[in-house]
């Protein structure tokens, strides 16, 4: 599939889309408020639907969070990564669990480990840890008992 064509199509339809650099798959940086529409657009893209969300995760950049959505078109065997930066103090982002059932649990994991709140998520509870544990994958997380820093 021609990813450059996809980029032109995305640019026509949405504003503020940049191409991601320093990533080994083709990716786009999109604004957080348009994320849900862009994921819908990619899922329904006429030249090969990106219908398989194979990874969803978050990274802590120190001053902001980046959400990463890895999508694959099963028919065309093409991959695309959607990245969006969100505020670290108030991390809120719309859920994609209504589009991909797999995202429901991947988002719960991100909520558990980073504290990112997913709007309209059907069942946003912690997945692994206790309620008062804190958010361990944040860079400023300090565990007084089990020190893992070196």
């Amino acid at each position: 599939m021609d990813i450059s064509q996809l980029k032109i199509k995305l640019g026509e339809k949405f504003k503020g889309i940049e191409e991601a650099d320093k990533i080994d798959l083709s990716g786009f940086i999109v604004p957080a408020d348009q994320l849900h529409e862009i994921i819908v657009f990619l899922k329904e893209y006429e030249k090969g639907k990106f219908n398989y969300l194979f990874n969803l995760t978050c990274t802590d950049n120190g001053d902001s969070f980046t959400m990463l959505y890895y999508m694959e078109s099963v028919e065309e065997r093409a991959n695309v990564v959607v990245k969006t930066n969100i505020d670290r103090e108030k991390p809120v982002i719309p859920t994609v669990a209504d589009l991909f059932p797999a995202a429901e649990y991947l988002e719960r994991e991100v909520y558990d480990l980073f504290g990112v709140v997913f709007e309209n998520h059907p069942d946003l509870r912690r997945l692994f840890l206790e309620d008062d544990f804190g958010y361990p994958l944040r860079k400023d997380f300090k565990d007084e008992i089990n020190i893992i820093e070196r």
Partner: peptide, 18 residues
């Protein structure tokens, strides 16, 4: 500096390392 992604097929399915 950058993000690297590798997908492999384990005995149970797709493992994806980022």
């Amino acid at each position: 500096e950058g993000e690297y992604n590798q997908r492999v097929e384990t005995a149970r399915g797709e493992l994806d390392v980022l």
